[in-house]
Write a protein that binds this DNA or RNA. Sequence first.
DNA 1: GAAACACCTTAACGGCAGTCAGGGCCAATT
DNA 2: AATTGGCCCTGACTGCCGTTAAGGTGTTTC
Lengths: 237, 237
Amino acid sequence: MPSSILKPDDIDKIAAIGPFADMPREDVEVLIGAAKPRQFARHSLLFSQGDPADSFFVILEGKVKLFTATEDGDENVVSVFGEGRSFGEAAMFASGRFPVNAEVVEDACLVRIMGDHLFLHLSENKELAFRMLAVMARRHRQFQKDITDIKSKTPGQRLGGFILAQTDVKSGSVSTMLPFDKALIAARIGIKPESLSRALARLRDIGVDCQGRDVHIEDVQRLREFCEETEPHPSHR
Amino acid sequence: MPSSILKPDDIDKIAAIGPFADMPREDVEVLIGAAKPRQFARHSLLFSQGDPADSFFVILEGKVKLFTATEDGDENVVSVFGEGRSFGEAAMFASGRFPVNAEVVEDACLVRIMGDHLFLHLSENKELAFRMLAVMARRHRQFQKDITDIKSKTPGQRLGGFILAQTDVKSGSVSTMLPFDKALIAARIGIKPESLSRALARLRDIGVDCQGRDVHIEDVQRLREFCEETEPHPSHR
DNA sequence: GAAACACCTTAACGGCAGTCAGGGCCAATT
DNA sequence: AATTGGCCCTGACTGCCGTTAAGGTGTTTC
């Protein structure tokens, strides 16, 4: 619970994360090096736009949002990452400065991996470079999806899609939970909290009930149709 | 003018492109391998969503759009790339399938680089892996900007920003040209063509005149203010 | 137990994007 | 000269998001 040394359990957790997936345990340990997991309370600012990007983070626990701030105090949430995700790698390979701010939105335990350390191992370990490329490519794909969603779907459809993403169930009825508060969800899908309330009220008509963070979907299939959550290119087999 | 063998001139051009930037000329030639530049007419479909991603493209000339298609026939333009840009790398490193369609929007001359060929050289050439990572990271940054723009700016501001991006001039008055037709611009910034017309009409009030593809900006600074095109974090020195 | 706060909802209103429909201009075709 | 098609603009209408303002509920704090 306090900032502490890496437990074996943590190594296993890290080994399940993007760049380290399926990596031999010894390699993971070497790569992490002297990095220790640290606790961060909610609202902790991890880095700001323009800070030198000399390291990246791995989330053992908790949630972190990446966002930009406009001069008039508005926030624009680009991503929210949870347990088992990493963030901040891209900035190290590009400009060398973070293009966004990072803030803890749920008490978190993070490992910070220094860039120079990573670069050393990148040179030695071809596999690792491929892994990093794959991580970046997957993130790339996610961004493309975010962009098409925000361009082509209504806020109600985006909200529905967000809710659907919280469960694996594809038909019938199901109960699930919102992963964080509604203000953050609103920022994530690109609308104001007031609009989210109204969108939720509209979803109620198609059998989606939301009390606090608890959501009950009467007919998942119906919601999926409303959101046009179609499988990508069913024409290809 | 026909599909032909690589001219020395072309090698130079490729050497100026992302993954190959500043690479020794010999290395570029090796990497390209047997790939020959090919001509593609406007409207040529280069690949579709779901196609196996076994190669990527480099643009020697012309323009290419990446887009997704919804079942009801609508198109959603993710990116438009021009001369000197590459595209399609990410899909090779991730799912192995293209998540978008690619169509030529201005007669183009392209070099297609096969993935297995690239992978071979990636293993041998550490430098190349870093370059690829940097290319992906920069693309990553661009996506983040696109997302914040579409979430936080009005269509009019996005259009203004798009126009401003066509010139280097930062103050005074300037004339420039739209790089492609207005329907594609509308799709790129995420609005309908009708809305683009109306947005242009509104821009007229702040001194932006558009005839066909010719645009004249009376006061660049004024347009920049309208678009809130502020330099990133002026607070940092 | 009252006050303060975080979180969320609702209402009223103005503005504007999407939609549908129609029309103008120009170039290529016939 | 007339037709076609590509490209773009305009108008009327609807719906919904942003804004502003107010209120409601539950939890923490003193």
